[in-house]
């Protein structure tokens, strides 16, 4: 069983870190995982994305053509990845920043006002974690608890005080996705 996913947004929205949370959780669950960032001559305000592949078997390609799941944190990311998604894939859309709905009808779309929810929790920088919660609940690739444990185990010491807020963000996103897909 292999799940490949892409997380994409403006630089600074935490797309790369969101992918790393999933990679840590997968590793701690004893799964195979690869995480690879977009890298290049990037500019401030440009988009950044990462590809994460999680599998119970050795992973060949760390890159994918048609991801089974994606988080798009901004409009350019939706424009780029909506057409590339595998049919039946899970697409988490940050509706706080993306005014349009996805056009494809063969995707499982979860619209999450990630920025608004994060602001409610007191820190807009948690928007990426809200989206991760939604993805995990919708795609069923890892449990919310596994991701929580990974955050506790791998957040740098200086950020440990943010752990309760991260857990809340994760659970808000997961609850919203579960309700949306129910």
């Amino acid at each position: 069983m292999q799940t490949d996913l892409i997380i994409s947004g403006f630089g600074g929205q935490g797309a790369l870190f969101a992918g790393q949370i999933l990679a840590y959780a997968a590793m701690d669950e004893g799964l195979h995982v690869t995480w690879i960032p977009s890298y290049g001559p990037e500019m401030r305000g440009g988009t950044a994305h990462c590809t994460v592949v999680i599998s119970d078997d050795e992973i060949g390609s760390p890159l994918v053509r048609n991801p089974a799941a994606a988080i798009v944190l901004n409009q350019p990311s939706l424009d780029k990845y909506e057409p590339l998604m595998a049919a039946g894939g899970v697409l988490v859309v940050n509706s706080s920043l993306i005014p349009r709905r996805p056009q494809r009808t063969d995707l499982r779309v979860v619209e999450v006002p990630a920025n608004a929810l994060a602001e409610e929790l007191g820190n807009v920088r948690l928007a990426n974690v809200v989206a991760v919660g939604a993805l995990v609940a919708a795609a069923g690739v890892l449990s919310v608890e596994a991701v929580e444990r990974a955050l506790a185990a791998h957040l740098p010491e200086r950020h440990k005080h943010l752990l309760p807020a991260n857990s809340q963000a994760l659970r808000r996103g997961a609850a919203l996705a579960a309700a949306a897909l129910a």
Partner: peptide, 9 residues
């Protein structure tokens, strides 16, 4: 470059 940039356990 992909192996240089990639994270894996």
């Amino acid at each position: 470059g992909s192996l240089g940039q990639m994270m894996e356990p």
